[in-house]
Design a protein around this nucleic acid. Sequence first.
DNA 1: CTGAATTCATAACGCGACTTTATGGACCGC
DNA 2: GCGGTCCATAAAGTCGCGTTATGAATTCAG
Lengths: 316, 316
Amino acid sequence: MTPVTLRQMRAFLAIVRLGSFTGAARQLHLTQPALTVQLRQLEQALGVRLLDRTTRTATPTRIGAEFARALAPLLAELDTVLERVQDHAARRTGRIDLATLPSLASTVLPAVIARLRVSNPGLRVRMREAVTGPVGEMVRAGMVDFGIGGSVKEDGELEVQHLFDDPLLLIFPREHPLAARRSVTLHQLLEVPLLLPEPNSGIRHAVDQAFAAAGLPMEPAQEAVSTGTLVGMVRAGLGLGVLPSTAVEMQVIPDLRALPIGDPPLTRPIALVRRAGRSLSPAAEAFLATLRECLALRGDLRGFTTPSRPLDGKKP
Amino acid sequence: MTPVTLRQMRAFLAIVRLGSFTGAARQLHLTQPALTVQLRQLEQALGVRLLDRTTRTATPTRIGAEFARALAPLLAELDTVLERVQDHAARRTGRIDLATLPSLASTVLPAVIARLRVSNPGLRVRMREAVTGPVGEMVRAGMVDFGIGGSVKEDGELEVQHLFDDPLLLIFPREHPLAARRSVTLHQLLEVPLLLPEPNSGIRHAVDQAFAAAGLPMEPAQEAVSTGTLVGMVRAGLGLGVLPSTAVEMQVIPDLRALPIGDPPLTRPIALVRRAGRSLSPAAEAFLATLRECLALRGDLRGFTTPSRPLDGKKP
DNA sequence: CTGAATTCATAACGCGACTTTATGGACCGC
DNA sequence: GCGGTCCATAAAGTCGCGTTATGAATTCAG
């Protein structure tokens, strides 16, 4: 007892629609004997005669007609389901859920999304800024397809892939003496009041480590939770701030200047964080592909999103 | 680009349900490599990864999960549709629409239906008594699956198949002199006032032809449209009536007697009438099978339905 | 009424797909 | 660490499916 196949049922519906084996064969790009065999198999599998054939034409049996009526919408729906899946495959449809840092969310990633909308207009992106929990945790919990952030440790569940290095910049009022220089050293930073992000942030981690590696004792004058407040404090004259270039792009306005720190320049790593062993959706793959395109285009991220608003004319 | 098959989708759902290739393989009575290949083909056909396999387990991708959610109810419904068709095939389900004569409808066929209910309890029979139009026309119009009646001419559209001969009986009050005899001849009928059905009925046709064949001039004393009124007229003393045995079984009560007419006995033919080139539903086939069983059991129809109410003790 | 054309059914044959057996690699649990 | 389990891959046999060729039956035209 061979099972009923989709092929057989599609053939059956075609024959019923056209009332003819030969016609259906033409439409299905098959020969007529193939259809004859298909239908015989279907009838054998079901145990019922579905079509009454004369030598001239084929008309459905009562049961055949009922079957066709029930079958047609089912197969149509099945086809739409398959098409929907294939739309995902072709990146014509899909949603990307990602977690990232606020700075990236408002600078780099919008550019990527814009580019994505050109190549894959059907894709929708939902960015979650990692305010509630670290990027890694959101990925681990399955809340997002992947994350883009820094300083996530790879383990059995998470797979981390370096994307680029985000330079850290020193932010200060343009009247400050440093404004004449093209860069600053770590030593120079020891002599000014430093405003740094809070201790458990990726930026702070990178800064602390740089000073530690250089054997220099650093004590921040002030700490800030958000980049916005940090910029505000700089502007208020409380000190000189350290921010990633992405965050700077987001907030700096003409009354402030920014300089790279150290040589080689101090950076924080930005990486792709994904669940180990889990494949990404085609939509997510497309997103990452355009992200990498963007990175390849410029090497790094400075001035990435806002070429029309140059950062102090200081780009190398 | 090979097409998606039911087999592949069933395999996919099984794997998703069990979270395991090996388990699904056991359930489907296949080997695990077969499932691996099936799923790879499905994924290739769709262009999407549906399952993320570790060496330990298989978990659906986001898209795979959506697909499975949409697919499962569809396939379930498809299966019920197929089962419904197979129920028809197995004669577990089905409706028989047939046209027949009032006499048969109330005598022979109920017995057939009763027998059918034993062997195929799921079948339902809808008998239409051919009062509005001749049985043949109802069959020709497709109002019924088949008809059981007499004197229908075979043509390109109708196929007629003899079933049995229904004896015609002479009905008269038990006080009548003929009550002593075991049969009557056509000659004897010429000497009594005859009550016959209307001219275009099958019975009348058989009677007229019998007299014509014998070269005897016959003139009915009265004509009746329904068998009921004919019996009433006999009972009222208007004459002696001629009725088919089936109709007699239906109506005769103790004050009347019935005798076969002529030797060999006068009969009317009862035939199966079906559309030429159209197959019958399994349900209809089952009905006809039990009808033939009933006929084979007794050779003809006399006393068929009411063995508990013997017809005058006159059965051969 | 006869012949051409069309339609469905059948037979034979060749290709391709599917399944099984055998084996390898990765991970889990004891 | 070692056996057991699970998925992936390769090779080989079998079966099914489709095409070509042909037949039988019916329709239509002349």
